[in-house]
Computed example of a mutant assay.
Amino acid sequence: MQAGGERIDVRRIVALCAAAVLLLAGCGDNAPEDPEVVVTGEVDAPPTVTYRTPLKVSETTRETVWEGTGPDLVDGRPVLLDFWLENANDASLVKESYTSSPTPRMLTEEDLGKDLYATLSGQQVGARLVQISPASSASATSYPTVTVLDVLPTRASGEPVAPRDGMPAVTLSEDGAPTITPTGTEPPTDLTVQPLIRGTGQQISEGDVITVQYSGFTWSDGQEIDTTWTSGSPQTFTLSDVPAWSEALLEQSVGSQVMVVVPPSYALGVTQSEEFAGQTVVFVIDLLATRSPSASPAPTAAPTEGE
């Protein structure tokens, strides 16, 4: 083909264009499309964390694996966390709570440290979050870390259940703390269980390690004798350590709120005050988590700054 006395090689032009297209395509193939750290797994189960090791981390980053759909976390108030912490140099597990018990913390920078506080602030119950942090000279952590956090409820949630006649009425404050109105009648002589909110989580089995919020009241006048709601921080018990609960809470579901009326023939377990010996006690219990005894040797401390 001639143009202005010069020969134009069409085949060469086509070949050069094709090479350019292939080069661009090759660049696209080498570009990373996935994040450095990929977190998979189901709700209420340990996560699977995937990344190349050693992971190079120059500054703390954070991502939301999935959004929470529950209440907003409140600054200065308790949060309940499951966590999975890895050494990002070799992806080895440092510690985790899924086989022990979730850990309550306060949503403050003082309690959590700057990074974890920033990761949790503004989140909602039900969120799964991942934090990637460099080695910290401010702590004993001499390696970069990957931490997955599941934000658990700190109060019962589910379908309300109408109480049977003759049971004390329960009123909840804005933060979930219960009070009761005495009936003015004689208490039942048998251990009595009344679900107030029916949750949809795992059922409690014999010997489980349970995490709860609770208050105890005297049947006669509704006086509060013991509670976790003063601090709002959930507590963890081995079910067998609380004799009345070990019978009353079997097969109740996590997420439920349960009233348990305990006659004086039962040991209370959670309250040791002799002042109330011989009295019928009414417990209002929010069931937040349960773990099987074989997988729950003891509660595990949650990570702090630099971990």
Rank of each mutant, 00 (worst) to 15 (best):
R198E: 12
T227A: 13
L172Y: 15
Q124Y: 06
D175E: 14
L196C: 02
R7D: 09
C17G: 11
S273P: 03
E59Y: 13
E247T: 15
S215L: 10
V262H: 11
L239N: 02
T236Q: 00
E59M: 08
R291C: 00
R128C: 03
S292P: 04
G126P: 03
P299Y: 01
G166V: 08
V79M: 05
S296I: 03
G76S: 02
A15S: 11
S137E: 11
N89D: 15
I225F: 04
E251S: 15
S97N: 13
N30E: 06
F83N: 09
A162R: 15
G278Q: 02
C17T: 11
T50M: 04
A302Q: 08
V151D: 05
G76C: 01
T108N: 11
V260H: 06
V170K: 09
Y214M: 14
G76Y: 08
V270G: 01
S136V: 01
E42R: 06
T183C: 10
Q202Y: 06
D221W: 09
W219Y: 12
S205V: 11
T189M: 14
G122A: 01
V212W: 04
L81F: 11
V212P: 00
E174T: 15
A277S: 12
G232M: 09
R62T: 15
S231D: 06
V37R: 00
V242K: 07
Q279P: 01
Y51R: 04
Y143K: 07
E174N: 14
A15K: 13
P78I: 00
V10A: 14
P163H: 02
Q131W: 00
C17D: 13
A301F: 09
P104A: 15
S273A: 13
G201M: 05
G76W: 07
P293K: 02
L80N: 07
N89V: 08
A244L: 11
R7Y: 12
T183Q: 10
V260G: 06
V212K: 02
G76Q: 07
S97W: 07
L250V: 12
V57A: 02
G232V: 09
V170L: 12
G269S: 04
E159V: 14
L107N: 12
Q203R: 11
P160S: 08
A156H: 05
R52Y: 03
M106P: 08
